[in-house]
């Protein structure tokens, strides 16, 4: 569960209002898709949720833990995949996974099982003993994803996770999303791919200039749209983000 209550965040001492009075709740078992034009405030919102940024105003809680007041408790139940996979180039993939397992306190048996499962799915098993330096961009992204899955967190937050993945890996990732949430967990991700959001998400939020301009299930979004042709998510998106 992720709760944002009247959250605001601006950059450059208030000159750029990146997130403006945002209120949003993502319930357990829900896949939430976060859409919006470039520069709308998606990454900023995500960084606020995972504690990389502090809100200027408002309250954010993950699984009931306030991310500012109880950061460690919130972090313990959350994992995050950034939009750009910057990872320790000098460690091997396996060393990185072990590091993440250690800091999240994942016991050996679970660690082994999950690592093997995801390495197989992402076809990384052969590269895992090589330094991350030698990975392609997509492989780096997959090792970050594997690391995020390793603690089997209650909440996963991902910033444009599908960018750069090949079709097979993207497919596997979407399957994983479904499985994760069927187990009663929460998933929040941003994307620019309309079909993915439409097919995969239980609920969708569209942010524009820092404000949430639409939010709800596909059915709710369609009902909200007053123009007649507005039946696809793309048309709805274009409608609510005009000007």
């Amino acid at each position: 569960m992720i709760e944002l209550e009247r959250v605001s965040k601006s950059y450059n001492r208030g000159q750029v209002k990146a997130v403006d009075d945002l209120t949003l709740t993502v319930k357990p078992g829900e896949i939430f898709g976060f859409l919006g034009p470039n520069g709308a405030g998606k990454t900023t919102t995500i960084k606020l949720i995972v504690g990389l940024l502090r809100p200027d105003a408002g309250r954010i809680a993950v699984e009931g833990h306030d991310v500012v007041k109880e950061p460690l408790a919130a972090k313990q139940v959350t994992t995050y995949v950034p939009d750009y996979p910057a990872v320790y180039e000098r460690l091997t993939g396996l060393e990185y996974l072990n590091f993440i397992g250690d800091v999240y306190g994942v016991a050996k048996a679970e660690r082994l099982e999950r690592i093997q499962k995801w390495l197989d799915i992402f076809e990384l098993a052969a590269a895992v003993t090589n330094p991350i330096q030698s990975y392609s961009q997509g492989m780096k992204q997959k090792i970050v994803l594997t690391a995020a899955l390793l603690p089997a967190p209650r909440v996963m937050v991902l910033d444009e996770p599908l960018v750069g993945l090949d079709p097979r890996s993207a497919h596997q990732l979407k399957e994983m999303f479904r499985g994760h949430c069927d187990a009663g967990k929460t998933l929040f991700f941003s994307t620019h791919i309309m079909e993915v959001a439409e097919k995969l998400c239980d609920r969708i939020g569209i942010i524009h200039r820092g404000k949430l301009v639409a939010c709800g299930t596909m059915a709710e979004l369609k009902a909200m749209d007053r123009t007649e042709g507005g039946q696809s998510l793309e048309e709805i998106f274009l409608g609510v983000t005009e000007t």
């Binding site: 396996l94 996974l97 072990n98 397992g101 250690d102 306190g105 994942v106 016991a107 050996k108 660690r111 082994l112 690592i115 093997q116 098993a125 052969a126 590269a127 895992v128 003993t129 090589n130």
Partner: peptide
């Protein structure tokens, strides 16, 4: 590039 066997993997995955 080489796949680790189950045993090798089990040895190299550390306990917490």
């Amino acid at each position: 590039k080489r796949r680790l066997t189950r045993d090798e993997m089990s040895r190299r995955v550390t306990s917490a």
